[in-house]
Structures are given as structure tokens and as C-alpha cells.
């Protein structure tokens, strides 16, 4: 065990994977010499050489498009999209190509690649450095989409994604890179280096894709969350004095419906929290799943707490970000129903 930030855990996952398998290559904008704007690939070029960790032209379509060709060749690309907000030029290569190559070729060709991107808000990044576009990936057949919430999972999910035979999108909550953030932006965070969840296993291990974790056990209400919202949910439950069970989904596709079902059947209530915009957001999918699987156990309507259906603002960030106050208000609402 070593105390690591989420950035260090991700860097370490790359290192472990590159050490284990010389087919693993890592590339993206500023990823090589500099080691990434968030430092997630620091030192890899020096250690493994420019053929295995390199900078690319600023062209997300080109980054993912070449990675698709590399995966078809038989090496294992991990690409970094500098911010999730920049992924859209690559969307066709992800949706129409990476996700479908196995199916459309009858298994003749496959596309095992990993696309990492820092996502989410809480850093005063404005509309182009704060988005949470997970629903654009969860909606696509053939993709897996995961969101880690702590250093141990960030490393384990990345190592699992690298071994996965299919394309995996990893949205890394950038607000969690240095420590858990519960939405209380006025208070300092406890850095991962001093936090029990900052303890990361050394060497190789995987966190299975498709398995949720229970971040807080409780009996009154289930909160379904992922990424930064896991900590907001825990803070809200504790401040409201409501014994909420917080499920950290970790993997959105495939979704751990067994874990969701078991929790909601136990509590009979459900609040869904995500940073992304509400309409057609992943919360809509979660609400459907809960309704389909747990309807006869529900004692109150399911509630979503989400980002508003607007572009992500800059100066007004804390009125957009679904912080503890909004979650508490909705926890009371669902408990009072």
C-alpha cells in the first residue's frame, strides 16, 4: 500500500500496465514529454521511450481514429482526451467505429482501446472544462463507461479497462484528482495523501468493471451516485441526519443492477445525484432501472438532483453544481413523502 493522489494512482496504473505488457502505448495532447496537463502520464516517456508514450497533434479525431487503427493492429492504446469537453470531434470515431467494429465485422476485427478524459466541474473551468458527458457514451452500444471516485478504484478500473477486450471510456472526476470533494467549496479538502481512501495497492490488481461499491451503508434511503457526487451524497446524508445508503456506481455500462436493487429494496426510497444536465441524463436511465426493478418496494417517488439543463456556468459555478444543500433538501423531500 502506498498513499497516492488519484493522479498518482492513474500514473501508477499506466506504469504497471506498460511494465507488464509492451503492447500498451499511451498518447495524447501534452502527454509525452510534459506528462499531461494533470500529470497523469508523468515520467512514462522517460521510462518507456517515445515509441510508447508520445505527444500528439491537437486533434481529438486523429487521436481516437489512430487509436482505433492501432487496436485493430493488435497493440493496446490508452489515449487521453485533455478534457472531456474536447471529445466531441472524436465522437464519430468512438460511436461509429470503436464501439461497432467487433459487431459489424462479425468478430473479425476488434477494438480494445481505453479513452481517458477528465470530466466534471468544481474547478471554475467554465463551459469548456467542466462538462460531464457520460450519457453520450452510456447511450452507445458497444462501449463500456466507468467513473472512479477514489485513487484505488481509479487505478483498478484503468488496469481492468486496459485488459478489457472492448473499448472503455473512463471519465475521471478532475475535482477528485487531489482529494475527495463534498461540495463544501468554502472549506479546504483533506488531500488523498492524508485520507484513508488515498491508500492504493501497489503493483497489479483490477477493479472489476460492472460492480458498484457501497460508499456508505444506511437504511433510510438509497442515493445512487458516481464520481464527485459520492462525497456530496455522503456529506448530505450526515448533515441531514438521514441514514442514507450511498451506492458508488463506478461502472455505468455495464450497470450493477443487482447492487441497486438490493439497496433500494432495503430502503424503499431513492435519490439519484449527478453533475450532468438532467434531460436525458444518466439519471433518467437509473430512474427507469429502479422503477422497473423495485417499483413494489418504493415508498416515495424517485428524485433526481442534477446539474441544470444549461451550459455549465463560470462565475455562478456553485449555483449550478449539485452541492450538499440541494441533496439535503431532496433527501428531506423523499423522506417526507
Amino acid at each position: 500500500m502506498t498513499q497516492r493522489t488519484m493522479i498518482e494512482a492513474i500514473q501508477n496504473a499506466h506504469d504497471v500496465a506498460m511494465e507488464r505488457d509492451d503492447k500498451v502505448v499511451v498518447f495524447g495532447e501534452d502527454v509525452g514529454f510534459f506528462g499531461g496537463v494533470f500529470r497523469c502520464t508523468a515520467g512514462l516517456q522517460a521510462k518507456y521511450g517515445k515509441n510508447r508514450c508520445f505527444d500528439t497533434p491537437i486533434n481529438e479525431l486523429g487521436i481516437v481514429g489512430t487509436a482505433v487503427g492501432m487496436a485493430a493492429y493488435g497493440i493496446k492504446p490508452i489515449v487521453e482526451i485533455q478534457f472531456a469537453d474536447y471529445v466531441y470531434p472524436a465522437y464519430d470515431q468512438i460511436v461509429s467505429e470503436a464501439a461497432r467494429i467487433r459487431h459489424r465485422s462479425g468478430g473479425d476485427f476488434t477494438c480494445p482501446l481505453v479513452i481517458r478524459m477528465p470530466a466534471g466541474g468544481g474547478i471554475f473551468g467554465g463551459q469548456t472544462h467542466s462538462q460531464s458527458p457520460e450519457a453520450l457514451f452510456t447511450h452507445v452500444a458497444g462501449l463500456k463507461t466507468v467513473v472512479p471516485s477514489n485513487p484505488q478504484d481509479a487505478k483498478g478500473l484503468l488496469l481492468a479497462a486496459i485488459e478489457d477486450p472492448d473499448p472503455v471510456v473512463i471519465l475521471e472526476p478532475k475535482r477528485l484528482y487531489n482529494g475527495p470533494f463534498d461540495g463544501h467549496h468554502e472549506k479546504p479538502i483533506v488531500p488523498w495523501k492524508k485520507h484513508p481512501l488515498g491508500e492504493v495497492d501497489d503493483g497489479y490488481y483490477i477493479t472489476e468493471i460492472g460492480k458498484a461499491a457501497t460508499a456508505r451503508e444506511g437504511s433510510d434511503v438509497t442515493i445512487l451516485a458516481y464520481g464527485t457526487m459520492v462525497y456530496v451524497a455522503i456529506a448530505a446524508a450526515e448533515e441531514a441526519g438521514i441514514d442514507a445508503e450511498v451506492i458508488d456506481l463506478r461502472s455505468l455500462v455495464p450497470l450493477d443492477t443487482d447492487a441497486i436493487k438490493a439497496s433500494v429494496e432495503k430502503t424503499g426510497r431513492c435519490v439519484i445525484v449527478h453533475e450532468a444536465t438532467r434531460t436525458s441524463g444518466f439519471g433518467a436511465e437509473l430512474m427507469s432501472v429502479v422503477q422497473e426493478l423495485c417499483f413494489y418496494f418504493l415508498e416515495a417517488p424517485i428524485i433526481r438532483v442534477t446539474g441544470w439543463d444549461t451550459p455549465y456556468p463560470h462565475a455562478q459555478e456553485w449555483d449550478y453544481f449539485p452541492g450538499p444543500a440541494r441533496v439535503i433538501e431532496n433527501l428531506h423531500k423523499v423522506m417526507g413523502a
Binding site: N51, G65, T66, V68, G69, Y73, Q93, S96, R104
Partner: peptide, 23 residues
């Protein structure tokens, strides 16, 4: 495998050749 979405394969061929060179 042919896509049917025009042009997508052009950059993939570059990636495939990069992989050959890397290997």
C-alpha cells in the same frame, strides 16, 4: 471492415501503420 461512414477509415489506416512502426 468497411464502415459506411465516409472517411473514418483514412485516419485508422494511419494508426494501423503507426502500430506497425511502434512494433
Amino acid at each position: 471492415t468497411i464502415s459506411g461512414n465516409l472517411g473514418t477509415q483514412f485516419v485508422q489506416a494511419v494508426g494501423w501503420s503507426m502500430a506497425s512502426a511502434i512494433s
